[in-house]
Nucleic acid binder design. Structure first.
Length: 306
DNA sequence: CGCGTTTGACCGGCGC
DNA sequence: GCGCCGGTCAAACGCG
């Protein structure tokens, strides 16, 4: 099923050399042996350079598309924020309800009033503590279904503090707190998708109030991830499983937005990188993109290819 | 012995 | 008011 998607997927040329090899193989009239390519070296490098240029141009175009997308996202995001802040004012005035609703808001916009315990009055602090404090984002990770460990490697250090079987899902939900910084309020829930057990759903609440630990720090400080149960995860297969990240709250840099006045361009760059990384790893996206813009860049690509 | 995980108990919110 | 359910706590346990 998925292989079908992959086959029809837009070739984004993530790995141009592989691609080049394929074309070369095709050009070498079905020679079986890979090693003895009969094309003269000069001609070969010429083809490669040409291919590389073409790929660069395509990447540039895709990059522009992504940037454009980001700009649109930002303007929409801002509009939505305005709308919601108006709504929440009304909401606060009329009803002091309710967790679920609050969570909906946070879910949709990533509205985090203030970090930490900076709420002003006690009353609004207790409930909204949960309502407004936490930024919530979800990460979907494809893993081996036979792999029972619920470990999501995201560069932070987590301490498990609970596990629970929930009603709507036979697989247990694990609760983690960020243990890299003692005061870090971030929590993470990890649970297998009810529909597709091969997909891990990690839900993050809150923001890290510390920078992302470096790999050295991670392997150094405490054994949380070097623990026997966690260790297998560091196997590249799992951590590099194809991941689609839906960061509902904050487009980028969600680790440390204590430094709010980050240049928007920087954020944009990070966002572009993140999106590109996520999207290009997702065969569904590439396929959808291919379908959507099949008249444009891709056609040009295909024409050249044929 | 220290640290992290496991797991049953407990608590609070919510619906009926 | 009661019961269900999700989230958290904390003692017990295991590992290095």
């Amino acid at each position: 099923m998925e292989s079908a998607w992959v086959d029809t997927a837009l070739d984004l040329n993530i790995n141009p050399f592989y691609h080049s090899n394929k074309t070369l193989k095709g050009e070498s009239k079905g020679e079986v042996a890979d090693s003895d390519v009969k094309v003269p070296v000069k001609q070969e490098t010429g083809v490669l350079v040409e291919e590389l240029n073409r790929v660069n141009a395509e990447n540039k175009k895709l990059n522009e598309m992504l940037t454009d997308l980001c700009e649109k996202y930002y303007s929409l995001h801002n509009q939505f924020m305005e709308l919601v802040s108006k709504n929440s004012e009304n909401e606060a005035a009329t009803s002091k309800k309710r967790k679920a609703e609050c969570e909906d808001y946070t879910n949709m916009i990533g509205f985090s009033g203030n970090d930490e315990s900076s709420c002003i009055d006690e009353e609004s602090c207790k409930r909204p503590k949960e309502c407004f404090k936490a930024k919530i984002s979800s990460v979907y990770l494809r893993t081996d279904p036979s792999d029972n460990s619920m470990i999501v490697r995201d560069g932070y250090q987590w301490r498990k503090y609970g596990q629970k079987v929930t009603r709507d899902n036979p697989s247990p939900r694990a609760y983690f707190k960020c243990s890299f910084a003692p005061s870090c309020p971030v929590k993470r829930k990890v649970q297998r998708s009810a529909e597709d057990p091969s997909i891990l759903v990690a839900t993050y609440e809150g923001e890290h109030n510390h920078p992302q630990p470096s790999p050295a720090e991670l392997s150094f400080s405490s054994n949380s991830n070097a623990n026997p149960r966690s260790a297998p995860v560091s196997a590249p297969t799992k951590s590099s499983a194809s991941a689609v990240t839906l960061e509902l709250m904050q487009p980028a840099g969600m680790g440390d937005d204590t430094k709010k006045p980050v240049q928007q361009t920087t954020i944009q760059q990070i966002l572009v990188q993140k999106m590109a990384a996520s999207l290009t790893r997702d065969p569904n996206f590439t396929a959808a993109l291919a379908a959507a813009i099949s008249g444009g860049v891709v056609d040009q690509h295909r024409i050249q290819k044929w």
